[in-house]
Amino acid sequence: MIKLISKTALLSVFVAFSMMKSQSVKEILNQEGSFRKDTIFSIKSDSKETYLPVTIIKGKEKGSVFTIVAGIHGYEYPPIVAVQELLNEIRPENIKGSLIIIPIANVESFQKRTPFINPLDGKNLNTAFPGSSNGTPTDQIAHLITKEIIPNSTIFLDIHGGDASEDLLPFVCYYNRKDIPENTKKAHDLSLKSGIQYVVSYSYTLTPTEPAKYAFKEATQQGITALSIEAGKLGTVQKDNVDLIKTAVYNMLENSGNSVKRKSKMVNQKSIVLLNQQDYIRVPEDGIFYSELKSGDKVKKNQILGYITDKFGNKKHDIVSQTNGIILYKVGTPPVNKGETLFCIGYNE
Rank of each mutant, 00 (worst) to 15 (best):
A248F: 12
A248M: 14
V249C: 01
V249Q: 01
Y250I: 07
N251W: 00
N251H: 00
N251S: 01
M252Q: 10
L253Q: 02
L253W: 02
L253V: 03
E254P: 01
S256N: 11
S256Q: 09
S256M: 12
G257S: 05
G257K: 03
N258C: 06
S259V: 05
K261V: 06
R262K: 10
V267T: 09
V267I: 09
V267H: 04
V267Q: 06
V267C: 04
N268V: 09
N268M: 13
N268F: 13
K270A: 15
K270P: 14
K270I: 11
K270S: 15
S271G: 07
S271V: 06
V273A: 10
V273F: 08
V273K: 07
V273Y: 04
L274C: 08
L274Q: 10
L275Q: 10
L275D: 14
L275V: 10
L275E: 12
Q277C: 06
Q277E: 11
Y280Q: 11
I281T: 12
I281P: 06
I281H: 05
R282G: 11
V283S: 12
E285H: 07
E285A: 05
E285I: 10
D286K: 00
D286W: 01
D286V: 01
D286Q: 00
D286F: 03
G287S: 05
G287L: 05
G287N: 05
Y290K: 06
L293T: 04
K294I: 09
K294M: 07
K294W: 04
S295I: 04
S295Q: 10
D297G: 03
D297N: 04
K298Y: 12
V299P: 08
V299F: 01
